[in-house]
Design a protein around this nucleic acid. Structure first.
Length: 214
DNA sequence: ACATTCTAATCC
DNA sequence: GGATTAGAATGT
């Protein structure tokens, strides 16, 4: 058969002169709009056998073809038989080619979506790390402030103890002095954490003051 | 559906 | 001109 002979020739050309072959093939494809045929079995045979010539008539789709396919894909990712046939005739392609294009397109699309999702999660993760670091720093600062506040309270309590043991003055004067100490303490605190510290001081006061109030 | 192969085109 | 890449086509 003549067709087979031509194919054999092309096969040889494709093997030895791939560039020339691709030009010829492209020309042929453009002249005869006839879609390319499915390839026949062409595994590369055997480990030490001479490698078989692999013949694959691959033709890039034209821009218009791709545009139409893209638009169609935009409408719907699935391709039912009817739409496939319609598209194929509009594009001058083998319906199988259209099916393959949709198959590959779905794969590319899925891949793209996965990559988008990945980079989204990645930036989210990075933001979270930064926030975690910020919070950890804040915790350290607050611990430090708490430590300072405790020291201050210890000092105040110590001073007060000394006052009690060495002074016989009325309790009312002690009380007022002590209030002023705490007031000083309040203003000694800094920043936005002041409210919390004030609460803490108040709580500390009510809990630990009672024994001496008796 | 997914993995893989293979090729045409492009980059350096 | 060889390494890389996109994507058409094949294999499972």
């Amino acid at each position: 058969m003549i067709g087979n002979k031509v194919d054999d020739q092309m096969e040889l050309i494709s093997h030895f002169y791939p560039q020339i072959y691709s030009q010829l093939a492209q020309q042929q494809e453009e002249e005869t709009v006839k879609p390319q045929r499915r390839r026949q079995k062409n595994k590369v045979e055997g480990r030490n056998n001479t490698s078989e010539v692999v013949m694959r008539k691959r033709k890039l789709l034209s821009e218009e073809q791709v545009n139409l396919l893209e638009r169609s894909f935009g409408d719907q990712h699935k391709l039912e038989t009817e739409r496939k046939a319609k598209l194929a005739s509009e594009l001058g392609l083998d319906p199988h080619q259209v099916a393959v294009w949709f198959q590959n397109k779905r794969a590319r699309w899925k891949n793209k979506k996965l990559e988008e999702e990945y980079s989204k999660l990645k930036t989210q993760h990075e933001d979270t790390i930064i926030e975690k670091y910020r919070l950890e720093t804040e915790v350290l600062k607050m611990k430090d402030q708490l430590c300072e506040a405790k020291k201050k309270i210890e000092r105040l309590l110590l001073e007060r103890k000394i006052d009690i043991s060495s002074n016989n003055s009325p309790t009312s004067s002690i009380f007022s002095m002590e209030q002023s100490h705490f007031n000083l303490g309040k203003f000694g605190m800094e920043g936005q954490l002041m409210d919390n510290n004030m609460l803490f001081v108040a709580d500390y006061q009510s809990t630990y003051m009672t024994p001496w109030d008796d």
